[in-house]
Design a protein around this nucleic acid. Structure first.
Length: 551
RNA sequence: GGCGGCGUAGCUCAGCCGGUAAGAGCGCUCGACUCAUAAUCGAGAGGUCGGCAGUUCAAGUCUGCCCGCCGCUACCA
């Protein structure tokens, strides 16, 4: 299934907001899927560019920083490095993980703004907004609190009442007060640039109806939004912590709305990567070449931004590639509840990273990716996946074959005798496994992909049961050698099939069997394990998880 | 309130445009094996596919209603 021509593949991943730690849900939702997909596409020879970065602007950052008595930058300086440790601990292999705080990003965003302006998609308008005179800040809806006009709840937020669930407008609140200072906010006129998003109803509807192979929940949601009608949106904010406007029409204190700006980070990150490579124009191959593919790995809460707003921004800008696919994941729940730091649901990521090997955790998560539905995950379930599937089926397969090779052939890959039909059938199965896994990953069915790869391991175990090399070793060493030679081929091939998911241990297996060295990704084909090769030491691939230590 | 989704074996889940006698993994039972991290292989038990009604020659698979659960609700990110 390899492409005749290598493709440019942009793997764009949600920008984590630099005001809090990440949890397993983020990993299962976006970061791990993107890494698996990117590794696979590198293996089949495509030119992959996988980028993301910390989203550092916006009001919530400034508010959180204020709460801590920090500057926004100090907050960013805490979380951005923390994110980097996650990637290292989970083997997330970025081409670039940057932030929205770079000069390149600022330049790209301002240029994007000017292009939209030239293309007539932006206009100026004024509105009245609540202003906190104590904090000297305009207040986003959720930072205005007051009494709900519907149910009388006294702590309703300006965007929604937590008590009765109704959507609110801040001006409807009785006795409004600022969440920042507690002061009573006043209405103040403010001028902003607005984005004529309403003009994109037609083109967006047309584009959405042309999509093929997208996940149903993603398309449904986007189509639903467009059917309801897209409204113009403010493009700028009264905020200094952000990318300033490239025009001075509005005076000081205005920034480009953090969300629009963060989306443009997919372009600026590619450019920054290009500059680092010393090929400043290289990014255009991913963004301007119509043959290039672009995948956005996000959680479902980001669907509006990646399946509607960002495509509309791209259309408004012109010349840039629209998304090939937005394989948004649903949520991982913990004991039936959405992970939430504030509500204490789900453990911090570090807790898992301290207790599980990277590949083991990657395995358990990949088998539970919420690709079509919310998926419930518990610590016991993770341990079960590791112990009873990964260790028992794959780890044990490798271990038993290597052990027998050590015992019967001094750890040297034996010379095969004549191959029986059974040998040839199972050897041919290698290609089928690789093809099946390949098809599944191409269509971003990663959960099925790893399940299929594990089937390959089960088939190899069944083969060993049929061939009983431990019995034939007493009577027929040539047959035993043939069986083990076949089994070693199977293992090497299966390590390739599992490599996007389990890069660390798969690399160790391949290396121990003397498979060809590879730089960043192995070739997606069954390697030949050569007779006479001395196997390198390879202890148990995975340690079993002790359930008692997980409490 | 609006929108979207979910409810299939004990558990976690597959089942695209309706059509061979309802699936997988784990757990459980039985058997085989003993090379291997008591790991593997095989066989089996186990489900009125949330409920009611309807469309159809035929419905987990379409329609309506009901019950239960969840998410989103965009000038918050």
């Amino acid at each position: 299934m390899n492409h005749a021509q290598p493709k440019k593949v942009l793997v764009a991943v949600a920008w984590p907001y630099a005001q809090g730690s990440l949890h397993l849900g983020h990993m299962a939702g976006a970061y791990l899927p993107s890494d698996i997909f990117a590794r696979f596409r590198r293996s089949v020879g495509d030119d992959v560019l996988m980028v993301s970065g910390s989203d550092i602007h916006g009001t919530p950052i400034t508010v959180k920083a204020d709460d801590l008595g920090w500057t926004p930058q100090e907050l960013v300086d805490k979380y951005h490095p923390e994110f980097l440790t996650y990637w290292k601990d989970l083997d997330i292999d970025w081409d670039l993980f940057t932030s929205t705080g770079t000069d390149t990003h600022k330049a790209v965003v301002q240029d994007f703004f000017l292009t939209l302006l030239e293309n007539g998609h932006l206009y100026r308008d004024t509105s009245e907004q609540y202003f906190d005179e104590t904090a000297e800040r305009f207040l986003p809806d959720r930072y205005v609190e007051g009494t709900c006009p519907h149910c009388g709840y006294v702590d309703a937020r300006g965007d929604q009442c937590d008590n009765c669930g109704r959507t609110l407008d801040p001006v409807d609140l009785i006795n409004p007060r600022s969440k920042l200072s507690g002061a009573t906010p006043v209405m103040r006129e403010t001028e902003h640039f607005y984005w004529k998003l309403s003009a994109f109803n037609e083109p967006m509807a047309e584009w959405l109806s042309s999509l093929k192979g997208w996940r149903r929940h993603v398309v449904n949601f986007a189509v639903g939004m467009v059917d309801d009608g897209l409204h113009d949106r403010a493009f700028t904010r009264d905020l200094t912590w952000g990318v300033p406007l490239p025009v001075d029409d509005l005076g000081d204190g205005k920034s480009i709305y953090v969300w629009w700006e963060a989306l443009m980070g997919y372009v600026s990150a590619a450019q920054e990567w290009s500059q680092i490579q010393g090929r400043p124009d290289a990014w255009k191959q991913w963004w301007h070449d119509p043959d290039a593919e672009t995948y956005y790995f996000i959680g479902k809460d980001n669907i509006p931004f990646h399946a509607v707003y960002w495509p509309a921004l791209i259309m408004g800008h012109g010349g840039l590639n629209l998304p090939t696919d937005v394989p948004a994941n649903q949520y991982v729940t913990f004991g039936g509840q959405k992970a939430s730091k504030s509500r204490g649901v789900g453990r911090p990521l570090g807790w898992y990273l301290d207790r599980f090997e990277s590949d083991a955790l990657r395995y358990a998560l990949a088998r539970s990716f919420p690709e079509s539905n919310d998926t419930d995950l518990t610590d016991v379930e993770i341990a079960r996946r590791i112990n009873e599937e990964l260790v028992a089926t794959w780890g044990n397969l490798v271990n038993r074959v290597v052990s027998m090779t050590n015992r019967y052939f001094d750890g040297v890959v034996p010379e095969p005798g004549p191959l029986t039909d059974a040998d040839q059938v199972i050897l041919a199965g290698r290609g089928e496994t690789l093809n099946d896994v390949s098809d599944l990953i191409y269509s971003v069915k990663l959960r099925s992909g790893i399940a299929r790869a594990m089937e390959g391991a089960s088939e190899a175990n069944a083969y060993l049961s049929d061939m009983v090399p431990w019995s034939t070793a007493k009577t027929d060493m040539e047959r035993t050698g043939t069986t083990l030679w076949v089994a070693l081929q199977l293992i090497a091939s299966n390590a390739i099939a599992l490599w996007p998911y389990l890069p660390d241990t798969s690399s160790r297996v391949l290396s121990a069997l003397g498979a060809p060295e590879f730089d960043r990704a192995p070739e997606w084909e069954s390697p030949d394990v050569i007779s006479g090769t001395k196997l390198a030491d390879l202890g148990p691939l995975f340690a079993k998880v002790d359930l008692d230590t997980l409490t």
